[in-house]
């Protein structure tokens, strides 16, 4: 079953600055003066202050701190801001929790509709037209291409981000991690697991 959080009369938004940056990007790459993959690489190289490590902290805290977990479900914007991850755009954050019966996946039409205060900048595939259209139509097939087979007994919920609401997936805590502390747990959390295109690899039981 597919539940698609979608606001029908909501068209896409672009700020003036975003449009100027896009104009530069499209004109300069059409003429071959820049290439998008190289630009993405440079961003990833330089960007250390905001990135998936922020989201991983949120996830690890949600796994280990019951009160924080409850706060995150109640008011994710405030719970995330309390860890120092804030955005100037003031968008609303919603945390969606994977469980044994539901898998969550996030998508958006615009590269700006991404929970970048916790995940940094979106990967190239997240911005690609095939992902943006197909994630909504056939999420199971898209996830299979990421190497993630979701059993048909499990429901997939696709969340369409907007300029106002950004989602963060809280993946399931892997088994055999009871002895790990918050910072060790955070290292297990991958970017894609917080978008919903991956789950966290199982941890081998300590021998």
């Amino acid at each position: 079953m597919l539940m698609h959080s979608h606001d029908d009369d909501d068209h896409s938004h672009m700020t003036d600055i975003e449009a100027r940056v896009r104009a530069l990007e499209s004109l300069l790459s059409e003429k071959g003066y820049i290439d998008s993959a190289a630009v993405d690489n440079i961003v990833q190289t330089y960007e250390k202050k905001i990135g998936p490590q922020n989201g991983a902290q949120v996830v690890a805290k949600a796994w280990t701190d019951e009160a924080y977990n409850a706060w995150l479900r109640e008011d994710a914007t405030a719970a995330i801001h309390s860890l120092g991850y804030t955005s100037r755009q003031g968008e609303h954050m919603v945390a969606v929790f994977n469980s044994t019966d539901t898998h969550h996946l996030i998508v958006c039409t615009l590269c700006s509709c991404y929970p970048w205060s916790v995940l940094g900048l979106p990967p190239t595939w997240y911005k690609s037209p095939p992902y943006r259209s197909r994630a909504v139509i056939e999420p199971r097939a898209v996830l299979a291409e990421f190497g993630l087979e979701i059993p048909t007994s499990k429901k997939i919920e696709v969340h369409d981000s907007t300029a106002e609401i950004r989602y963060l997936v809280i993946p399931e805590r892997p088994k055999n991690t009871d002895s790990l502390g918050e910072s060790e747990l955070a290292q297990l959390v991958t970017r894609n697991s917080m978008i919903g295109t991956a789950v966290i690899d199982p941890v081998e039981p300590a021998s």
Partner: peptide, 23 residues
């Protein structure tokens, strides 16, 4: 050219329902 391209992006965004790629 930059101004024209910027206007095209704005127009494309305003015509694109959320959930569809802006092109």
């Amino acid at each position: 050219a930059l101004l024209n391209k910027k206007a095209q992006w704005h127009e494309a965004a305003s015509k694109t329902p959320h959930g569809e790629p802006i092109e």
